[in-house]
Amino acid sequence: MKTTSPLAMVSVFFLLMTSLSFSQGKPLKDHLLFYSSFDGKLSADIAVGDAMIYSAENYKNTTKAKIGLDDPNVVLAKNGGIAGDALHFKEAKTSAVFYRAYKNVAYSSDSWSGTVSFWLRLDPNKELAPHYCDPICITDSKWSDAGLWVDFTDHNPRQFRLGAMGDIAIWDPNNDSDEKDWSKRTVTVNPSPFQAKTWTHVAFTFSEVNTQKSNFKLYLNGKFKGVIKDVNDPFTWEEENGKIMLGLGYIGFIDELSVFDKALDMNEVKTVFELKNGLKALFNGQN
């Protein structure tokens, strides 16, 4: 029978703790997988995977997606962002506008963690069309099947939600989900702080997805708003089909879209929120 000496065990423990401390001590910029400032261009400033933005007639047939925007109602708004330009959705759309998630969100079938951060500007009660809309949805399929998303409800006043819907075959196999199933998998903010002339920072984190310890947290303007936990539905993807979907039915501005490779804690989320000139400040000696 093989045995391990106490000295060897101590050495392994030391290496593990050193590695963990190094990872936790890395500056925020070293945790960025993807960052699109929308300043003067649609391609991402930073991308581990594909940096290009794509558009297609709809999400049912993205094999024919083209690089760039193919809709005059989705444009770069010059000087319309928090510091520079922003992406502006002028009308509610069902067409597809997306970045490829493959490698840009570091999906893992074993244990998947990360943070998605962005800014929104709109008056949801005056500007949105009368139906649900998703400014951001990350999935390889659809919002209800292994999808992470934020949306505005069709109620008046409009509520803002984070949703974490695992494999639909697990959480809704008979297509008979009820309010209890939904409330377990969403965080609802009511009233929401969004305003037409003021930017609102949104961040959601996901931790240890595809394990029995997964949780999903929502932050607005650096403040914790709620958590989804004790659900543990699997998120099963065909990785290369993953997409960061933008502006499904949304009318308003999006800016400073970023994905980190870890679940940021509250102080880190607050740090990102307080960067006056966006995430570019991380590369100018801050954090």
Rank of each mutant, 00 (worst) to 15 (best):
223 K>I: 04
154 D>K: 02
78 K>I: 04
195 Q>L: 12
160 F>P: 01
187 V>K: 00
34 F>D: 14
249 G>C: 06
214 S>C: 15
101 A>F: 09
43 S>C: 15
241 N>L: 13
182 W>Q: 00
82 I>N: 00
63 T>D: 14
164 A>V: 08
147 G>M: 02
205 T>W: 02
198 T>F: 10
240 E>Y: 15
235 F>A: 01
134 D>T: 03
67 I>R: 13
17 M>T: 11
267 N>T: 10
50 D>M: 13
260 F>N: 10
51 A>C: 14
67 I>Y: 13
35 Y>C: 12
165 M>H: 05
244 I>T: 03
104 N>C: 14
19 S>V: 11
278 G>D: 05
147 G>L: 02
269 V>A: 03
182 W>I: 01
222 G>I: 03
283 F>A: 09
265 D>C: 00
194 F>N: 03
133 C>S: 05
34 F>Q: 13
185 R>L: 09
17 M>Q: 13
77 A>T: 05
203 A>Y: 01
265 D>H: 00
192 S>L: 04
88 H>P: 09
216 F>N: 06
233 D>M: 07
16 L>T: 12
75 V>D: 01
230 D>L: 11
90 K>N: 09
13 F>V: 07
154 D>P: 10
157 P>H: 06
211 T>F: 10
219 Y>H: 04
266 M>R: 11
64 K>R: 12
92 A>N: 07
137 C>L: 02
209 V>T: 15
82 I>S: 01
266 M>H: 11
213 K>V: 15
268 E>S: 02
197 K>C: 06
135 P>Y: 00
78 K>S: 05
159 Q>T: 04
207 S>F: 15
142 K>T: 10
19 S>T: 13
12 V>C: 08
129 A>K: 08
175 N>I: 07
197 K>W: 10
4 T>E: 11
247 G>Y: 01
214 S>W: 15
26 K>C: 09
168 I>P: 06
196 A>P: 10
114 G>L: 08
15 L>T: 12
11 S>Y: 15
142 K>H: 07
139 T>D: 00
282 L>G: 06
131 H>F: 03
230 D>N: 12
65 A>S: 12
134 D>G: 08
263 A>C: 12
141 S>A: 12
177 S>H: 02
144 S>P: 03
39 D>R: 11
43 S>P: 15
160 F>M: 00
274 E>W: 08
287 N>Q: 09
61 N>Q: 10
248 L>G: 08
137 C>V: 09
62 T>R: 02
33 L>N: 14
18 T>H: 15
191 P>M: 10
223 K>C: 08
192 S>I: 06
241 N>A: 10
91 E>M: 02
246 L>G: 08
53 I>H: 11
59 Y>V: 01
215 N>M: 14
80 G>T: 04
86 A>L: 05
228 I>P: 14
74 V>M: 10
62 T>D: 07
120 L>G: 04
264 L>C: 00
121 R>H: 05
89 F>L: 07
31 H>C: 10
186 T>Q: 02
93 K>H: 09
95 S>F: 07
